[in-house]
Write a protein that binds this DNA or RNA. Structure first.
Lengths: 348, 348
DNA sequence: TTGTACGCGTTATCAG
DNA sequence: CTGATAACGCGTACAA
């Protein structure tokens, strides 16, 4: 055994007095090799503690068996769950997952894409940053012949596949649910309406209102950030209205939480006086004493499906650029913050 | 521009009628190259949209500029925060982070290590799985001359650095805090005492009791899992005791949460009748209507420091195998579930 | 200051 | 079935 643990097929070939090419073939189970030689090689390989050098393999084949995943922040539950899905789907196929963060900055997003391409990844998965307003860097990925898959936050780029949830439907579902609970003046905490996902949630909200015969009231739509403070502020503004809402569909769980805290301070009873549904199914929503209804985006499934789309693409017969758009259905988790069905029974 | 975007230093050298070596040197800012040539090369490189192939570089240099991070599950807040810390510290140094999951299985842990070594990573960061009871695979990493750094869950292996928090101190702090709040019969939800971290928390708990003149009561120590159900079960068992505890230091936030829910059902007032502190500072603990006290393990910092340890190691003058043990101090986050200081004031 | 030649570890092609 | 040779893209002694 050599010092630094770097055993190559050459070392094996010398020991066995055969050529390195033969060793390589034996190791790769090439059919045109004698069983005897193969066994000899495997035995020697094991004995010498040989390991394939995937770097050399990659350089030769042009396939690194690495993929990059770019997200705003990896320690957000939603993103880390997606990454988990990708890893679990791709791992068994021999891929490694390289992670990158953008911190919501387009410049770093561009930089991350560049370094990933330098590293010769076989594909890139990503959720675009909030500040991204340009698609040049995405096109570059395609130009290099690499596969690109968007998840959740996407832009329309020809040739790029995407996996998202149906945000329109999610908004529609949540709002309809509130209506079914007896809410009549439903507000909306909208998030950044420049982002496709928030726009779609908003439209789903409007659609549900109209379909049930309610006239949307622009005063009921609040621009919010995804934070507790923003939710509290929105709640206060909401309560200054002449005709106070009796429910809200919030495009963020954090905003929903802030609103709940604020409304409680003001003595509003939930869900009796006011129903609320959040978005993302953040872990905390189900742990509260008053669990918060929320829309689950099934991130694990999202990651797995994104990975499957990638696999189809790379396995497919070469240059045929497929573009696949997968739209997943969200799941509404109804919890106490919007569930009036058990109110009368609860006589504790 | 070539078809597949694969521009090499050869393409540049041809275009400029110089040798590839000169191009390489110019690109690497080798001092012994004329400024004029350098500028010519840079201009051509930019124009031809040249990108360094890090794979080839890595094969040549023996340094891939990739590190692997192995954790049980990446979508646990604690782990994803550590990974974030590692990425943010290492990214600026040109490293990429490859993530792997063990699902708490030693066999997959071994496999992940092997494939990471095959990929020629420059180092491996990891938190060992619960079922790991053997150090052979760790030694193998060292034998290959790669740097290994444990974080949080570690084993003692000569030559391996580690970054952990002081679990003993954490247990001591939390327990002392409960005592300071007037608790006299303090229980402990212990987790898996075979794991070093839980053992240390338990010992910190015992130490605090003794130091304050309390005699530890074995009946007050409960073996628990890190789950809500386990916490509820422990609470019930606890309440069957003749002398009921009046506080608990839980080694897990989930267990603490389960206990709180169960105790409330039984009409126990928190923190008046019973104080509780959890562990990990999971996001949900601070969002509850009754925020839960918890020990913050400062995972972001932990990741950054682990990365720094790695950098010191690889930058150091070669084979000198350094072994660095960093022990971080935990931070106790005191919240309502164990804070009696404001009880009399609260007259709302 | 620049060019030549070689090697990193592997696989594919072409002979034999 | 097996061996020699080239090539993937880059960096670097050595020579000029």
């Amino acid at each position: 055994m050599k010092e630094n643990g770097k055993v190559t097929i050459y070392d094996i070939s010398k020991k066995l007095n055969i050529s390195a090419a033969t060793v390589s073939r034996a190791l790769n189970n090439n059919p045109k090799i004698s069983i005897k030689t193969r066994e000899l090689v495997f035995a020697a390989a094991k004995e010498m503690n040989y390991k394939q050098n995937r770097l050399a393999q990659a350089l030769k084949s042009g396939k690194s068996k690495n993929v990059g995943v770019i997200v705003p922040y990896i320690n957000r539950n939603f993103f880390s769950s997606i990454i988990r899905g990708i890893e679990e789907e791709l791992g068994p196929h021999g891929y490694h997952v390289i992670i990158c963060q953008t911190h919501e900055q387009m410049e770093t997003e561009i930089e991350q894409i560049n370094t990933l391409l330098n590293t010769q990844v076989d594909g890139i998965f990503m959720s675009i940053s909030k500040s991204t307003n340009n698609t040049e860097h995405f096109k570059k990925v395609l130009k290099e012949g690499k596969c690109l898959v968007f998840f959740d936050r996407k832009m329309d780029v020809p040739g790029v596949s995407s996996v998202v949830i149906d945000d329109f439907k999610a908004g529609y579902m949540a709002t309809s649910h509130l209506i079914s609970q007896g809410c009549r003046r439903i507000a909306h905490f909208a998030g950044d309406l420049n982002l496709e996902i928030y726009k779609n949630r908003h439209e789903g909200y409007l659609s549900a209102l109209k379909e049930h015969g309610f006239k949307p009231n622009p005063d009921y739509v609040f621009r919010t950030l995804s934070s507790i403070e923003s939710g509290a502020a929105a709640a206060r503004k909401m309560w200054e209205l002449k005709e106070k809402p009796d429910g809200v569909f919030s495009a963020s769980d954090y905003t929903a939480l802030g609103a709940i805290q604020e409304l409680r301070k003001m003595g509003v009873r939930i869900p009796e006086d006011f129903c609320i549904s959040g978005f993302s199914n953040e872990p905390f929503t189900k742990y509260m004493e008053m669990p918060i209804s929320s829309v689950d985006q099934t991130p694990l499934r999202m990651g797995k499906i994104a990975a499957q789309v990638f696999l189809e693409q790379v396995d497919s017969t070469e240059k045929l650029t497929i573009e696949k758009k997968v739209v997943l259905s969200p799941e509404l988790m109804v919890r106490n913050s919007s569930d009036r069905s058990l109110l009368k029974v609860a006589g504790e």
